[in-house]
């Protein structure tokens, strides 16, 4: 098995991302959906993917129903996967209930954490808006285990994009470990420590990142706030796959 350099990005709220993938190289979920069939991940050539889906009789009427007049091809397969991804949404977290006026929805620690998030800790410089992302690209000083990953620079030849990656949403962040583009941290506490240090590497580091002077309680408050962004569990029916 080949271990890849990047951690799987969450698909939670990916519907709202203007660009997909850690380096933003895909412009839509439909484009993104076909990417992982490549050699590094599923190693399934698209011709073989089409052949397999076409050979399962039960898919015929389902695709015809969803995409009338369109054959089963990589195009419609990508549409189907992207349509599913757009249903993977996170909202209605305790934080949202608090914003809506329920003062008891957040613990005092989470409330203090939110103040730090938008203030002293400067997290909101990048993690902005309802989805807690600026949809932007930043080098946040993560050290790669091998050669440094060029990140966004591979597609935008601008110096500051060296080692820059897309700001991920923080929705359901407590459920989506490991963290950072290469999955180098297993816990939110370790992520907070990374930012307290001002990052591990300084090459092309975003000026938004600087060492933070946070007490042990303040670090815990930030984690409590991030945990308040977890939405309630949803009931998902496992589909019966056609044969």
């Amino acid at each position: 098995m080949k271990v890849l350099g990047r951690s799987t990005p969450t698909i939670v709220n990916a519907a709202f991302n203007p660009l997909q993938m850690w380096d933003g190289r895909k412009g839509s979920l439909e484009e993104q959906a076909l990417g992982p069939f490549g050699a590094d991940e599923q190693n399934l050539p698209l011709e073989e993917l089409e052949r397999r889906v076409q050979s399962i009789a039960g898919y015929g009427p389902m695709f015809a129903d969803a995409y009338p007049g369109e054959p089963i091809t990589r195009t419609t397969i990508a549409k189907a996967i992207a349509s599913f991804e757009r249903t993977v949404l996170s909202d209605g977290a305790p934080f949202d209930q608090w914003v809506a006026g329920d003062q008891d929805a957040l613990s005092p620690a989470a409330r203090r954490g939110f103040d730090l998030f938008v203030g002293k800790a400067n997290c909101a410089a990048c993690h902005q808006g309802f989805n807690f992302t600026d949809n932007g690209f930043h080098n946040v000083g993560v050290r790669d285990s091998g050669a440094p990953d060029p990140g966004r620079f591979a597609f935008k030849k601008v110096a500051s994009m060296q080692g820059a990656f897309k700001t991920p949403t923080l929705r359901d962040i407590a459920l989506t470990a490991p963290y950072m583009h290469n999955g180098c941290y297993d816990t939110l506490e370790a992520v907070v420590e990374h930012y307290v240090r001002g990052g591990e590497t300084k090459d092309h580091l975003s000026p938004n990142i600087r060492p933070l002077d946070l007490s042990a309680q303040e670090k815990g408050d930030l984690v409590a706030f991030m945990r308040s962004l977890t939405s309630a569990p949803r009931v998902v029916s496992v589909p019966t796959l056609p044969r």
Partner: peptide, 22 residues
């Protein structure tokens, strides 16, 4: 804005990179 920008152009006519500024 209270965060950095990095204005650039990679146009054929003229390319420039003004770097990040706060």
């Amino acid at each position: 804005d209270p965060f950095v920008h990095n204005i650039f152009s990679l146009s054929d006519v003229q390319s420039f990179d003004l770097g990040t500024f706060a």
